[in-house]
Design a binder for these strands. Structure first.
Lengths: 177, 177
DNA sequence: TAATTGATTAGAAATGTATCGAAACACTAT
DNA sequence: ATAGTGTTTCGATACATTTCTAATCAATTA
């Protein structure tokens, strides 16, 4: 985790990005890079040494010059490899829910009630979030809230109860999960 | 280019990485995150707003809370997408050369002379770099330099001439490309 | 409308880091 | 050896950024 942050910090600098782009084209050395970027050799050296100790670049002496080259492997990882802590597992269940929701809602409204039970549960739950848990709602109030999402408040209200998301007791509705 | 640097800067911060990891698990809101990370809501707000304006997270009001969620698309790109300027094309030729070199050199010495002409040219050129262009070398001197890489200096010297990398004129050798 | 709660902004303190000039270092050539 | 060339280190400065407290804003509830 620490290393990942270090790598990100290294990459998050204008000058170092310029240097990396030069090395992407061809190996080079301190003075040459300094000249290309209009900075002093001291500055370029400072950046290259920093990147070297993080394993981003390598260097080797060749006659007069110390030639720096890229360690290209590092850049092949996708970005999330760098941001996610090792203990986080990508939640495919959550991803699936997001996809279902984005398929069935358009401009904040439910385009149709899914026929598949699993998907129906997901979109109903999405609407259910508008209700507070344990607060008492009148039927009219419930209908109005559902109407914001779909005209068939009747089916949706009934289904929410069928899924055990809501209870109904003498015209009083309550969200329960 | 500017945006890429901005994104990298955003990601290169301990606290923001923590926040992103929380949002990776589930959507959340300012106070809750502040509590989890033992920081003030003001600080969390500062980071979230920053990330929002860069399109890394989105927010929407839900009753009391303003719920922040990740824009997951952003993290799917490989890292080099973020470092390379748009005008740089990845040099596959260069990559290939690097691979050949790393296959045939071990601990700075040539393990064997490649039989494939293309590969042989690449490793010979690698050794050739030890010579300065246009300087005159005696045969003994040439042999010594090649010996640093491989015992069969005779074959290598002859091949360098055959490839037109060196010229020989009355025992005087010159690197020409 | 007033009170409550969460979110945001402003200003200040503290920290971190890029850059430079100058000096020291390392290798090469004469 | 000594001069020349390129590299690295050091110390100082300038600038950017994180974090906090306190005040303000915005939505909700009584």
């Amino acid at each position: 985790m620490k290393e990942k942050l270090e790598l990100l910090k290294l990459l998050a600098d204008q000058t170092r990005l310029e240097i990396l782009n030069i090395l992407l084209k061809e190996d080079s050395y301190v003075e040459k890079i300094a000249c290309e970027l209009s900075l002093t050799p001291a500055t370029i050296c400072y950046h290259l040494k920093k990147m070297e100790s993080a394993g981003v670049v390598n260097c080797s002496r060749s006659q007069f010059y110390i030639i720096y080259s890229l360690n290209r492997d590092i850049f092949e990882k996708p970005l999330y490899e760098l941001i996610k802590k090792d203990d986080v597992v990508i939640d495919t269940e959550e991803k699936y829910k997001k996809e279902v929701i984005s398929n069935f809602f358009k401009y904040g409204r439910l385009t149709q009630i899914p026929t598949q039970r699993k998907k129906r549960e997901i979109v109903l739950f999405e609407i259910l979030k508008q209700f507070e848990i344990d607060r008492e709602y009148g039927e009219k109030e419930v209908n109005e809230i559902i109407l914001r999402y779909h005209e068939d408040f009747c089916t949706i209200r009934r289904e929410m109860i069928a899924f055990g998301m809501m209870t109904r007791d003498h015209e009083i509705y309550k969200r329960v999960k």
